[in-house]
């Protein structure tokens, strides 16, 4: 199990969480009409073999969306913050 230290609930197994994918992509503003910006946001991924900023939601817990920094080669988690306060 990955162990994710939820800032609200403490360290928990990752299967209490819902994965939300890459958190480094920037979502266009809701009224952005540029298809290219939305294409990049929805589809294009750096997919690094290394440090990855990603979303996880503590669904069986506080239900907060979190931003987790994790190494995709060894699953070492280096930071966890609330998504609300950690916009890139």
């Amino acid at each position: 199990m990955l162990r994710i230290e939820c800032p609200c609930c403490g360290p928990r197994d990752h299967d209490e969480f819902r994965y939300g994918g890459d958190a480094s992509v920037s979502r266009p503003t809701h009224d952005d009409p540029d298809p290219e910006a939305w294409y990049a946001y929805v589809y294009v991924r750096k997919n690094p073999a290394g440090l990855h900023r990603e979303f996880w939601q503590h669904v069986i817990g506080c239900r907060q969306w979190l931003v987790v920094e994790r190494d995709t080669r060894n699953h070492v988690v280096s930071s966890v913050t609330f998504a609300r306060t950690s916009r890139a």
Binding site: G20, A23, R27, H30, F55, Q57, W65, A83, R84, R87
Partner: peptide, 9 residues
């Protein structure tokens, strides 16, 4: 919840 937490806080 995702949209509120990440896109439109």
């Amino acid at each position: 919840e995702f949209l509120l937490d990440t896109a439109w806080p």
